[in-house]
Structures are given as C-alpha cells and as structure tokens.
C-alpha cells in the first residue's frame, strides 16, 4: 500500500514538473470542445447528439494522454529502476491511480465548460456524475494496461488508440446510452442497468489487467 502511494506520488511530482500528459489531454479536450461547439452551435444539437459528443470528447482526450504514464518510463529508461523498487502490482496500481486522477481532473474542467458551451442539462446530477466516475474507472483501467503494452512496441502513439479503441468501446457505448437516459427524465429508471454494466466492465477489465500486468512488465 505504501509503495502504491509512492509510485503515485512520484508520477504526480513528475507531472507537476513537466505537465506533459495533463497539458496534452486538457488542450485536446478544449480544442475538440471548441470545434464541436463552433460547428454545431448552442441550441441546435439534440440531447442524443450532446451525449455522444461529450463521450467522444472525453474518450479521445483520454486516448491522447493516458499512454504517457508508461511511455515516459521507457523513453527515459527509468523502468528498470522502478522494477527494482516496487512489485509489479504496486507499479500498476500506482499508475492506474494516477491515470484515474488525471481523468477526474480533466472532467472537473471539461464538464462545467460543456454545460456552459453546449447548453447541456441533466435531470439527475448525482447519477450523471456516477456514470462519469464508473466510465473513467473503466477507461483508466483499460488505458493503463494498453499503455503498458504499447510502451514496449514501436510506433507507440498511433498504436495506443488502435489498441484501446475496441477494448474500451463498451464504455463508450454504455456511457453514451446512460447519459442519454439521464438527460431525459422519463427514461431514468433503466439507467441502473447501464450503471451495473459499466461497473461490471470496469471491474473485469481492471482485474484482468492486474493479473496480466506481470507478463508485460517483466518483458
């Protein structure tokens, strides 16, 4: 537990110094949000379109920055030191925690902006936040694991999106659908089924990642 915290704090300090991942994720999200808001305007988009756009912005901004967590270790050749200092599961947990934290910070900035720029309204705010939380849980788990895989391959940047997109698409599909239900109050009853599925997906992908991480990390 102590080591997990140590890895997380190390990455957080590094991030404070360089702000590489955070800048790329935040700016990517801002640019797409601006483009979308510019192209569609505030009033013309229907609720379905808004829900889809929100998740597409979140998903692809996550894709632009989540891989940095492992790629940087390979680029600066610090992975071997980290192998000596902590167990594989501790490294993975620390990195997962950091990516999850990164997504939450991104959402704290982007979601209010999305509400303002897109004239976005939800029926039940707590449910909406729960959807985002569970979605980020799945995104962070799958994203961190794929980041670990591609950090050992060549052509890292392009490969990350190619590999994570199909694995994380269930999050995107269920997330969009659940958000649609939250916007329109008459559908709110069936949103719990989507929440369960999101939660189940997050648990499954994170568990399998923990189990398989050893093989990637020692490679």
């Amino acid at each position: 537990m102590h080591k997990i915290w140590f890895v997380f704090r190390k990455d957080l300090l590094q991030e404070f110094n360089t702000r590489y991942a955070f800048n790329s994720i935040l700016l990517f999200a801002l640019i797409t949000l601006t483009a979308v808001s510019f192209a569609i305007g505030t009033y013309s988009a229907s609720d379905e379109v808004k829900a889809a756009l929100l998740w597409i912005i979140l998903f692809f901004s996550a894709m632009s920055g989540l891989s940095h967590i492992f790629v940087k270790e390979e680029e600066t050749h610090t992975a071997d030191t980290l192998k000596l200092l902590a167990q594989p599961y501790q490294v993975f947990a620390g990195k997962l925690l950091f990516n999850f934290f990164l997504l939450i910070v991104l959402e704290l900035i982007i979601i209010p902006l999305f509400f303002v720029l897109m004239n976005f309204e939800v029926d039940s705010l707590p449910l909406f936040l729960l959807i985002l939380l569970l979605g980020s849980f799945g995104l962070a788990g799958g994203g961190t694991m794929v980041a670990a895989i591609i950090s050992k391959a060549s052509a890292k940047g392009a490969l990350f999106t190619v590999l994570s997109f199909p694995i994380l698409l269930p999050v995107l599909i269920i997330g969009i659908d659940a958000t649609k239900m939250v916007i329109q109050p008459e559908n709110s009853a069936s949103v719990y089924l989507s929440l369960q599925t999101l939660f189940a997906f997050g648990m499954v992908i994170n568990t399998v990642s923990f189990l398989l991480f050893d093989f990637v990390w020692k490679e």
Partner: peptide, 20 residues
Amino acid sequence: LSAVYSLLAFVTVPFLIFII
C-alpha cells in the same frame, strides 16, 4: 505482448456478444 492483448480483448467479448 500479443498474448496479453489477446486475453485482455477476450474478456471484453462476453460484454459485446452477450451483455450489450
């Protein structure tokens, strides 16, 4: 690495085929 990716992808298959 491809074995790990294959297994990671395989656990999402039940979601795609049966749950969604």
